[in-house]
Write a protein that binds this DNA or RNA. Structure first.
Length: 418
RNA sequence: GUGGGUAUAGCUCAACUGGUAGAGCACUGGACUGUGGAUCCGGGGGUUAAGGGUUCGAACCCCUUUACUCACCCCA
């Protein structure tokens, strides 16, 4: 063997033994989202750097220090997408989808952020996300959150819904000034991180876990009390909608979203199975984003689910990984059987019966062990004896009962049994 | 970017506080030359992450590097 090459830090392989879990989580997403009228969109993994700088926000950590940026032969400044909303909005605008009225789209795929990996956080990670464009009314917020709740419960995932309103351009700037003023006045009592965040992202300060900061934070002006009438009404309507839909939630006044584009509704589903990175899904409203990216004023709301985080939860729950197993494993008992078995497999496959065989041939005992290992429901034994009689022995792997079946009838018998 | 922890067979881990590398699982062969999950016997597999130092002798002690991992920051 020559020098071993290992994978890129923070970018993981999903091996066949685990991939069933991913299929499950993607299949359930497609199923549930379709029930709510969301349709899948696929956009490139690479986008112009400017899309994220303008859309997500130049000052956010994601854009300023976590993005993979590169020059494409010196011509264009490109970036690996660090999140899915910006690209989706870009496609929405570029194809003029807004002329057709409200749209509900979803996507799934890899995202890239160059951070230090840890549990539940990777440099290439996968998100499943939904975006609803063109509806400003709070009913869509409630519907979308309920859909996410529905999705999680179908997977058996227990997560807590936290809800907040982060205001809008009418009320947030004034509140931020107020908060900054208050924090600056009490800077001496705050930790170093908080003093920095006071300027950069004052809402984050409210989330600080340092004990010495708490007394100051408890008396800080609260966003909820400074929302404008529009935001307040919206927030209340979302809560009422969730109540009507039977979705449990808690209002979390300190819940903040990291991306610049969020307004009003902000929400997060968290799980305690995840270690420090407790968010399974997070989302919110982004009414100004479409316009920021060059489209007509269009309200929107969306969320993203962390697929790796979901798999971690499912694993912690002990939920078994669904496995694809062949229906039949063909076993050749001797040389004539070994020749016949390939052709028989082809016939069965044409009839839609999933089958496998050990192409090495070899000892009977090994083949049947192989059938056991791959989880086949039946073994089909074929040798000179059987061929002479124009049949094969069908062995039920669970009961070990063997019944002769005419070769001509095999495909029909097996595809009927499914 | 900053801290802590860990690196021994494909996987999970041993190896008497320095004496020359072992088990289980997995794989593979046989007992059973046409019948699996059990049992028994055998086999392949390791520069003990890498490099340097101390020592008669290092998986073990010291230094450096790398990787992995958890946490901070931030987020899905």
């Amino acid at each position: 063997m020559s020098v071993k090459i290992s994978g890129v830090k923070g970018m993981n392989d999903v091996l066949p033994a685990q991939v069933g879990r991913w299929h499950e989580l993607e299949a359930v997403a497609r199923e549930v989202f379709a029930l709510y009228g969301y349709r899948e969109v696929r956009t490139p993994v690479v986008e112009p750097h400017a899309l994220f700088a303008r859309g997500v926000g130049e000052a956010t950590d994601i854009v300023s220090k976590e993005m993979y940026v590169f020059e494409d032969k010196g011509e264009d400044r490109l970036a690996l997408r660090p999140e899915g909303t910006a690209g989706t909005v870009r496609a929405f605008i570029e194809h003029g989808a807004y002329v057709e009225g409200p749209q509900k789209w979803f996507y799934m795929g890899p995202m890239f952020r160059r951070e230090r990996p840890q549990k539940g956080r990777y440099r290439q990670f996968h998100q499943i996300g939904c975006e609803a464009f063109g509806v400003a009314e709070p009913a869509i917020d409630a519907e979308q959150i309920a859909m996410l709740d529905d999705y999680l419960s179908r997977l058996g995932v227990k997560a807590t819904l936290k809800l907040n309103s982060v205001g809008d351009p009418a009320c947030r700037p004034a509140y931020l000034d107020l908060l900054r003023g208050y924090l600056s006045a009490h800077a001496a009592a705050l930790c170093g991180d908080c003093r920095e965040r006071t300027q950069k992202n004052p809402l984050r300060v409210l989330d600080c876990k340092v004990p010495t900061c708490q007394p100051v934070l408890e008396r800080a002006p609260r966003l909820a009390e400074h929302l404008c009438q529009g935001c307040r009404d919206h927030f209340e309507a979302v809560q009422a909608g969730l109540g009507a839909l039977g979705v449990a939630f808690t209002v979390e006044p300190r819940l903040v979203r990291g991306l610049d584009y969020y307004v009003r509704t902000a929400y997060e589903f968290t799980s305690d199975a995840l270690g420090a990175q407790s968010a399974v899904a997070g989302g919110g409203r982004y009414d100004g984003l479409v316009e920021t990216l060059g489209g007509p004023p269009t309200p929107g709301i969306g969320f993203a689910l962390g697929a790796e985080r979901l798999t971690l939860i499912l694993e912690a729950m002990g939920r078994p990984v669904p496995a694809a197993r062949p229906e039949v494993f063909l076993i050749s008992a001797d040389a004539p059987g070994a020749v016949a078995v390939l052709g028989l497999a082809a016939t069965l496959r044409r009839a839609g019966v999933a089958c496998d065989l050990d192409a090495r041939g070899g000892k009977f005992a090994r083949q049947i062990r192989q059938a056991e290992r791959v989880g086949a429901r039946f073994a089909l034994v074929l040798g000179g004896q059987e061929l002479a009689a124009g049949e094969a022995k069908l062995r039920d792997m669970a009961t070990r009962a063997e019944t002769p079946v005419k070769l001509a009838d095999l495909a029909a018998v097996l595809s009927k049994g499914r």
